[in-house]
Nucleic acid binder design. Structure first.
Lengths: 203, 203
DNA sequence: TAAAAAATTGAATATAAATTCATTAATTGA
DNA sequence: TCAATTAATGAATTTATATTCAATTTTTTA
């Protein structure tokens, strides 16, 4: 035999994979999944289209991985924001604000992800992700109800409503098009108040 | 000359157009826009694909018309539900419940419409539609604030949040998959409570 | 440096769905 | 019924991407 992967080569391969993921992430965060065609990903990553298929079985698989990684990162941050010993209403407010601010700062994938059109395979993954986001809020609600800080309510429904509320407020018709910082902060505050009142967590 | 459209023919043409719209509506409400390919529409309508292009310049135009008609109908019903002289919180509750019940009853297009993936042209129309739904709620909120029944809030943001909240609760991860009537009514009630509390309209 | 193996390329192919248009069928008025 | 005109068909074309693979380049070891 006269070829064996050297550590150097190994590294370059891993590098390629990373480049593909990064390129996809960049394209998606700029123009959504729609703009992330294989050829575009290849161009941005500086490789050929064929290469992509040495690392990912299909475009759907690539998307699912990018989606998963971005969401996991976001969930981690969100979970930290949700931690603490303040009353549930306050914690909810902090968490919502955290998400919304990050989304407004963009290019951040999470919110594009939870709202965007894709093919069925990726869609399944997207639903799972929305559920994950919901679970962060659900945990706050359950604890708040246990402590008697929040009125009784269906935590699954309320959590879904919260995710839906800020998603729509962010990517919907009134979403961030050409807004200045002040407007953005006002939007953040409005969404936060809405969600806190919604779960009965107003002081 | 020896051909001129007779009233009979005129009627048949109008009939074809209607059949195309109905077929599209049926397919979309069953399987979303994804399932409504031109060939499928043609089959369901019982005509050839070519025919469709005698009535609609493109698939996007067809979709936009179907979307618009369905949403207008829904808006009309919603506006009626929003009318009345009860306190704003109560009116909001009625309106939300009306929408959610109708969506759960399906096949009703409106909610599939406001949540589904499509190409850019149709997407613009969809955004307009979501805005229309929001405006129904905004009107309630503005009036409620004027009368001092609701706390001050950004009515655009709150309206968007409401639309987002029930949309997500309906089509999101906890949405209606295999739910019995009782579960559905519980979901309706949960969403309603959430929205009423959210705008500060609790009694 | 040369041969073997693997990595990389990108043009060619596959796929899926929208749109067209030459052809055929149906309708109208004389 | 016939000629003129329009309606209707659906196979062929177009379009837009994803995916493959024969050919090329690079890397490794002897």
């Amino acid at each position: 035999m006269s070829y064996r992967r050297s550590p150097l080569m190994e590294e370059r391969l891993a590098n390629n994979r990373e480049r593909i993921l990064l390129a996809t992430r960049k394209l998606v965060s700029e123009g959504g999944f729609r703009e992330a065609q294989i050829s575009a990903v290849a161009t941005v990553a500086g490789i050929s289209t064929g290469m992509i298929y040495r690392y990912f079985p299909s475009k759907a698989d690539l998307f699912v991985e990018v989606l998963g990684a971005a969401v996991d990162q976001e969930i981690k941050i969100l979970t930290q924001a949700a931690a603490g010993h303040e009353p549930a209403g306050e914690r909810l407010g902090k968490t919502v604000t955290c998400f919304v601010r990050r989304a407004l700062k963009g290019p951040n994938l999470a919110y594009a992800f939870i709202a965007e059109p894709v093919d069925p395979e990726v869609d399944t993954a997207r639903l799972r992700c929305r559920k994950k986001f919901g679970d962060v809020f659900k945990a706050i609600l359950v604890e708040g109800m246990q402590k008697g800080e929040l009125p009784e309510q269906d935590p699954d429904a309320s959590a879904a409503c919260i995710v839906g509320a800020f998603t729509e407020a962010l990517v919907g018709p009134i979403g961030p098009t050409t807004r200045n910082t002040q407007d953005k902060e006002r939007l953040v505050a409005s969404i936060q108040s809405f969600c806190i009142r919604a779960v009965g967590g107003a002081p």
